[in-house]
Amino acid sequence: MTNVFGRFDFEVIAGWIGPGERVLDLGCGDGSLLKYLREVRAIRGYGVDNDKDNVLACIRNGVNVIQIDLERGLAGFEDGFFDHVIMSLSLQTVRHTEQMLAEMLRVGREAVVSFPNFGYKPHREAIAAGRMPVSERLPYQWYNSPNVRFFTIADFEALCAGRGIQVRERLAFDGDHPVTQDPNLNASMAVYRLGRGG
């Protein structure tokens, strides 16, 4: 997934990570984010991915990677072990969204989540025209997409509110431009910093 994940997102995420933190990157792709965070924040990180080519790419990148199926949860990781648990542009590929978010906030102090916004205006227009959206952020056809959950910024925030997940920060983008006006309509993707509520 990292091929559609621009450097500017790395900077946003790095801005939320402190020096020397323990970081878990779920759906880590080729490990470039962890490599970047190691360079700029001296983190100790682990990636998780279940795609064999991604696992190999991480090893080639010198990044710790653990091949497990995220749908089976994060059972092996201890409560509160990580400072940040990141899931960049992968949440929509996980079937058990609620459990995933709960698990991220179990093993991590905070979670960082980014996802493509299905409510993005061009996507709405595609649907209105009768076709599923295909775009830079959603580069797949409906029949070959790894995405299994289709949700908007508004949907996600409703879920967080309903499950006691605190949105500590949100940045929304159209391409690499920050969006502040009506992000649910104007942003192609969003990045969140989440914590346990209360």
Partner: peptide
């Protein structure tokens, strides 16, 4: 192998794990 992986993560060791089909 996963037991060893998680025990090593606990100890903050560098560890990679591949499960080969």
């Amino acid at each position: 192998s996963r037991e060893m992986v998680f025990a090593l993560v606990h100890n903050r060791r560098d560890v990679s794990y591949a499960e080969i089909e």
